[in-house]
């Protein structure tokens, strides 16, 4: 039986804005499910609550209404079966590359002699052999992202949540990272939920795409991407179906983006 399935049922998240004396609904009645080993992207206009949704699944933020379960068990607090790659790289600046990658194993009480070869393996896999003793500030943005990825994958979580992980990278580095991610994913077949505002990225990577509405974030539609695998993100864009998919989904997304933009202009958000 495949593991790493996620089910969201009528998930709502509200928080209070004490200064304005009202409640803000970030995510409203969101329901969808992710099969074990599936790659699902969430796209939507900025401020639509897609990052909040990820934080809810990770157990970093409590659900106000509805429920989220992983393999049938409801999420209650931070779940060790999960991995999370942050938008900003959340590496530990006072630790070296090897120490960073090994940290989750240390936290999980894995014996040093078991941890060492696994750390070395992942450092080799992300192409940073020779950089073991470097500190994060000595690395480029792309290299830091690789370390963050290795740090998440080293303990082989069943589910990997990624919150716009490549948003801050330049286009070339970004494409390389996307290809590396696809390769790692096809080898390990973990469930990935990937938040992005970049529709092209979402189509190139995913099995399915969840389109969210402007705030409060609801599920607008869900698309299945049946482009052939294995994919190369740079080449899949030339596939005849790619443009058609892009056009269809963009039509759906466009209105929400405009709505989100107008609201942010009139100050309804923040």
């Amino acid at each position: 039986m495949p593991t790493g399935a996620i089910v969201l049922e009528q998930v709502t998240h509200r928080f209070s804005l004490p200064r304005e004396n009202r409640e803000f609904t970030a995510v409203e009645r969101v329901s969808f499910d992710v099969r074990g080993g599936e790659f699902v992207s969430i796209v939507g206009p900025s401020g639509c609550g897609k990052s909040t949704l990820l934080a809810l699944v990770a157990g970093l933020v409590p659900v106000s209404e509805g429920r989220i379960s992983l393999d049938g068990r409801p999420v209650a607090g931070v779940d060790p079966r999960l991995g999370f790659v942050f938008q900003r790289d959340a590496l530990f600046p006072w630790k070296t590359v090897a120490q960073n990658v090994g940290l989750p194993l240390l936290f999980r009480g894995v014996a040093a002699e078991v941890a060492r070869p696994r750390v070395a393996d992942w450092i080799a896999r992300i192409g940073l052999r020779g950089f073991e003793r470097y500190h994060p500030h000595q690395l480029s943005g792309g290299m830091r992202k690789r370390v963050a990825l290795a740090m998440t994958m080293v303990y082989e979580p069943e589910i990997v949540l990624m919150d716009e992980p490549f948003g801050a990278l330049d286009v070339q580095t970004r494409n390389l990272m996307e290809n590396d991610l696809l390769e790692i994913w096809s080898q390990f077949r973990r469930t990935v939920v990937f938040v992005t505002h970049d529709l092209e990225e979402a189509i190139a990577l995913s099995d399915r795409i969840v389109v969210m509405t402007a705030s409060p974030g609801r599920v607008k539609s869900i698309y299945t991407i049946s482009l052939p695998r294995p994919r190369s993100v740079t080449e899949i864009r030339f596939h005849p179906d790619f443009g058609r998919l892009y056009e269809t989904i963009w039509k759906d997304l466009k209105d929400e983006v405009r709505l989100g933009y107008e609201r942010s202009q009139t100050g309804l958000l923040d």
Binding site: G83, A90, F107
Partner: peptide
């Protein structure tokens, strides 16, 4: 940094790990 604390928790850090690391 809140992200750092959250990341440590997700990576499996207990209260002692959080303090120490």
């Amino acid at each position: 940094d809140r992200d750092l604390v959250n990341n440590a928790r997700l990576l499996g850090a207990g209260p002692r790990h959080l303090i120490r690391h």
